[in-house]
């Protein structure tokens, strides 16, 4: 449904995102997870045709975001970080306006607005002026707006930011209820949020995709596992064999091989640095370097979880 390929975007000299790629299946909820200023909003703004990428492409529903921007906009609903509302208008008038600029046929406008009001549970405040509503209701108005014209793809930028816990639960439930009918991308800097709502997570940090997996896998992968990076001179199979004989090893991956020197990443349940060194040396392999991998992913993960506890 959504294919993102090598998106790169510069703001002047500053690179906001580089080579961001991922795919989203029809009916799936994908979470874009990352700390602030990681490039989530930039990615979403490019996907919604708010601004073009410096390089790279993406298609939504088969339409190219640059070449067929109007088609993309027609099938996509977008809720920016700050809901794009006009405080002077009434909820009903606002949604009608959105329906009109989205090109909804005149005889379907009422129906579309009713449906959006229903989905976002805005019945009570339909005739209220938006500026006078609470933050939670404003957010829901923004969400209702993104659902007008029944878009195939819904893109939500930090939909729960600034809400109180009860409102957060309501919005999350609302988003989950949209699953299946719409393909959804939502961004967040809070891990439990994506754990609860999303089926798949793309982690972005410093403008790069650093991991892509289901929330469960990510959690187990990161909790209780140690990563060590090694540089070893010798044969690939011999290295794998020497390391594989140790207990508690989860995975051994040869990253690169250059002039007989392999870069290896090992994940294990416990700290096995001593044992690894011994085993490699015993197998007559040249251990050139060994250091624990404070990988970006782990840092980010730590960052995300502590962030959440603080919030």
């Amino acid at each position: 449904m959504i294919e993102v390929k090598d998106l790169t975007r510069y703001y002047g000299q500053k690179r906001a995102i580089s080579n961001v790629s991922f795919n989203v299946q029809k009916g799936e909820i994908l979470g874009l997870l990352g700390p602030n200023a990681a490039g989530k909003t930039t990615t979403m703004r490019i996907l919604t045709c708010y601004m073009p990428p410096t390089s790279g492409t993406a298609t939504i529903g088969g339409y190219d975001i640059f070449e067929q921007s109007m088609e993309v906009r027609t099938i996509t609903g977008y809720l920016p970080e700050n809901p794009p509302i006009y405080p002077d208008l009434e909820v009903n008038d606002y949604l009608k306006f959105v329906a009109k600029i989205k090109g909804v046929e005149k005889n379907r406008i009422e129906k579309e607005v009713d449906a959006a009001v229903e989905k976002a549970s805005l019945g009570d405040v339909r005739n209220r002026v938006i500026g006078k509503l609470s933050k939670g209701y404003k957010q829901r108005v923004g969400l209702a707006q993104s659902l007008i014209n029944n878009p195939q793809v819904v893109i939500l930028d930090e939909p729960t930011v600034g809400l109180d816990p009860k409102q957060i639960i309501e919005i999350r439930e609302l988003i989950r209820s949209l699953k299946g009918e719409h393909t959804i991308i939502l961004s967040s800097h809070i891990l439990p949020e994506v754990e609860q709502t999303c089926e798949r997570v793309v982690i972005i940090s410093n403008g790069r995709v650093v991991a892509e997996d289901t929330p469960e896998n990510l959690t187990t992968r990161m909790r209780g596992s140690e990563r060590v990076q090694l540089e070893v001179e010798g044969d690939e199979d011999a290295i794998k064999k020497a390391l594989g004989s140790l207990p508690d090893i989860l995975s051994t991956r040869i990253e690169t091989k250059d002039n007989g020197v392999c870069k290896v990443v090992v994940e294990s349940k416990s700290d096995l640095r001593k044992e690894m060194a011994k085993s490699l040396v015993d197998s007559n392999l040249g251990l050139l370097e060994l250091h624990p991998d404070k990988a970006t992913l782990e840092d980010i993960f730590l960052h995300l979880t502590t962030k959440e506890e603080g919030a």
Binding site: T48, M70, P80, P84, V98
Partner: peptide, 14 residues
């Protein structure tokens, strides 16, 4: 100022 340009630019409006 209100950020509503994001709405205008991301809906099918020229």
């Amino acid at each position: 100022k209100q950020g509503t340009v994001e709405l205008l630019y991301t809906t099918p409006l020229s």
